[in-house]
């Protein structure tokens, strides 16, 4: 089985968000970048398929050279090889088309992407990619088993979960649950040393559609002071008469 894990390079979850150039760009100053958390669960599940079922695991990231440290980290966790598509990931449709070209060339059986990237929260890359290539697709995937060509997946739905059966080739949008939090791998020294020697191939982008563009950004209005109350009577009164939510 040949697996491609799509890794998005995103600001650390603790990052404070600021914008520059007249609020037209995200300010990366002082921001630490990490593997998108949803992708990290998928990558760890891919490692399980590698160890238990002999799968080959490649990673792909659409991004300029600045994303390479994040890709090296994914290689240190255990992926075999990396592919970087050398262009800024400006729009979900565009990113999906870039990845579709890689998936087609590499003849992957399984593509593991994240439910969404925590930066722009588009959540569209796996679904668009799957549809372009005519592959099966399961979103918000919290469990995945593969037996031969058959896949059994569980996806999170509003208020519960659904088990689905499908076949390879398959694309999933993964998230927490694919593996337990405690199974997430932190790269060790040996992994980091080995990752330095692994192939990280750079390919040029294909012509693709830019469907959307972020023209400006703003931040939520600052929150007013919290009203601290001493009794539940006062709280219920405020919720009823002031906030009007009960």
């Amino acid at each position: 089985m040949k697996i491609l894990v799509c890794i998005s390079n995103v600001p650390d979850t603790t990052s404070k968000i600021n914008f520059t150039d007249n609020d037209t760009k995200f300010d990366t100053n002082g921001v630490q970048f990490v593997i998108n958390p949803n992708d990290e669960f998928g990558l760890t599940r891919a490692m399980w398929f590698k160890e238990k079922q002999g799968a080959t695991v490649h990673i792909a990231t659409v991004g300029e050279a600045t994303v390479e440290p994040t890709m090296r980290k994914a290689l240190a966790i255990g992926a075999d090889e990396g592919i970087r598509i050398n262009v800024a990931p400006t729009d979900g449709y565009f990113v999906a088309e870039q990845l579709a070209a890689v998936v087609k060339n590499g003849e992957y059986d399984l593509v593991i992407a994240g439910r969404e990237s925590i930066d722009y929260n588009g959540g569209m890359v796996p679904g668009i990619l799957a549809t372009m290539l005519g592959m099966n697709f399961v979103n918000t995937c919290i469990s995945l088993e593969i037996e031969g060509d058959t896949a059994t997946a569980i996806r999170e739905i509003d208020g519960g979960k659904e088990t689905v059966e499908t076949s390879l080739p398959l694309v999933i949008g993964g998230q927490k649950g694919l593996v337990e939090e405690s199974d997430l791998k932190i790269p060790n020294m040996r992994g980091i040393m080995m990752a330095r020697k692994k192939a990280l191939n750079v390919v040029e982008p294909v012509d693709a559609t830019k469907a959307t563009q972020d023209v400006s950004f703003d931040k939520p209005a600052p929150k007013g002071q919290v009203k601290l109350v001493d009794s539940v009577d006062e709280l219920v009164d405020l919720l009823h008469n002031e906030a009007k939510v009960i």
């Binding site: 799957a130 996806r155 469907a211």
Partner: peptide, 19 residues
Amino acid sequence: SANSKFLAPILAAKLKAGY
């Protein structure tokens, strides 16, 4: 909803639509 977020990207690819 989870279902809308599941189908919208598929629909986007079918209609070549920005989402």
